[in-house]
Amino acid sequence: MKTIIVPVDFSEHSEYALKAAAALAKKRDSEILALHMLDMHVASMNESGSYHQEQTAFLLQFAKKRFHNFLKKEYLEDVKVTPIIKHFKVFSEVNEVAKKENADLIVMGSHGATGLKELFLGSNTEKVIRFSEIPVMIVKNDLENFDFEEVVYATDFSRESIGAYLQTKSIVDDLGGKLHVLYVNTPYDNFKTTAEMHQMAAEFLIAAEGNAEKLKEVSFVCDRTIEKGILNFANSVGADLIAVSTHGRKGLSHVFRGSLSEDIANHATLPILTVKM
C-alpha cells in the first residue's frame, strides 16, 4: 500500500479520514495525496469569461492557503503528503487521479448514522465509490484505534464476488488483520440448510483459492435480516472494519440484494471498506 488518496473538503469528517490515512501511511511508508476539488460550476455558467478567470485565480490561491493550514497537523509529521487541487467537482477525477498515481486506496470521511442516509442519495462519498476502481474506506468517526485487526467480510459466495473477496483478503493481510468471512442465513429469503451452506462455501473457496482449507474459518450465522446478522457478528468478534462489495457505476450495490449496503452504512459506527466486483 504505497499511495493513499484522501479527498479533503476541510470538514471535520475529512480530517477523520486524513488522520486514519496518516496512521496507515506511517505503518507502511505510504504517500498521501490530499485531493481538494473547487466547486466552480455555477460561477462558470453565470459569469463572464474574464471575471470567471479572476475568480478562479482567487479561489485557487485561497484553497492553496487553506490547504497549507489544514495540513499542519502533528499526526502528519514524518508522512509524505502531496496536496492536489482540481478546479471542478468532477468525482470521476478522483478515480482518474488514482489511476494516474497508481494509488492503492481512497480514504474519505462521511457523516454519522443519520447523515449517512445522504451517502446513498447522491452525496460526494457515494459518487466517489461509484467511479472508483480501487477500494474505498469510509471513516465516520474520529478513530482512537487505527489497527484493523478484526475485519468482517460478508458474502453470498457468488462467483462474481470472487475477485472482491481476493482483493479484500489481500488488503486485510497487508493491514495485518484477521479476515472473518461471514454468511448470514435468514428465515425469509433463500433459507439454506447447514449442509447447503457448507457446500456453497466450499465450492466458492475452491474456485477462489484452489482449495477449501479455509472453510473451517468461515462463520455461518442465522438472523432475522442479513444486516442484523452482519452487525451482530461484527460486534461479537470486536470487529474494527466491515468490508462489502460494490458494483461500481451500477450504484452502491452489495453482493446481496436490496438496500443492505445502505442499511449497514447507516447503522454501523465502524469504518467500511468497499471493494468493487
Rank of each mutant, 00 (worst) to 15 (best):
G176A: 09
H198Y: 12
A195W: 06
D173Y: 04
A195M: 09
S170G: 10
M200S: 13
G177K: 01
D189E: 08
M200T: 09
M200A: 07
D189R: 09
F191D: 09
A202E: 14
T194M: 04
A201P: 01
D174T: 15
V184P: 01
E203Q: 14
L182C: 08
T194D: 12
A202F: 06
S170C: 09
T193W: 03
L175E: 11
T186A: 05
K178S: 10
D189N: 08
E196T: 10
L179Y: 05
K178N: 11
S170H: 12
D173W: 05
H198M: 11
L179M: 14
V184R: 03
I171V: 07
Y188N: 13
T194S: 08
P187T: 08
M200C: 05
Y188V: 11
T186V: 11
Q199R: 15
A201I: 00
V181S: 15
P187C: 09
A195S: 14
S170A: 15
P187V: 05
A202W: 07
N185R: 14
E203Y: 09
D173T: 14
T186Q: 03
Q199G: 14
K192D: 01
F191Y: 14
Y188T: 09
T193F: 05
V184D: 01
H180C: 02
V172M: 12
H180I: 02
E203V: 00
Q199T: 13
G177V: 02
S170T: 11
M200R: 15
T193H: 05
I171N: 00
Y188L: 10
A195T: 14
N185F: 07
E203H: 09
E203L: 04
D174G: 11
Y183C: 07
I171F: 11
L175M: 15
A202P: 06
A202K: 05
Y183N: 10
D173G: 09
F191W: 12
E196I: 07
Y183L: 15
P187S: 12
L182I: 12
Q199P: 01
L179R: 00
K178H: 12
A195D: 15
A202S: 13
H180F: 05
H180L: 02
T186I: 13
Q199K: 14
D174K: 01
N190Q: 09
L179V: 03
T194V: 08
Y183G: 07
G177T: 02
A202Y: 00
H198N: 12
P187G: 04
D173I: 11
V172W: 14
P187A: 08
S170R: 12
K192A: 06
M197G: 01
V172A: 11
D189L: 10
D174W: 04
M197K: 06
H180T: 04
I171M: 10
V172F: 10
H198Q: 15
H180D: 02
L179K: 01
F191E: 13
D189I: 05
E203W: 02
Y188M: 06
G176F: 14
V181K: 06
A202L: 02
L182K: 01
K192F: 05
Q199I: 11
V172K: 06
L175K: 10
M197R: 06
A201D: 05
L182T: 03
M197S: 05
N185M: 00
E203T: 03
N190E: 04
D189K: 11
T186L: 08
Y183P: 04
Y188S: 07
D174S: 14
D174M: 10
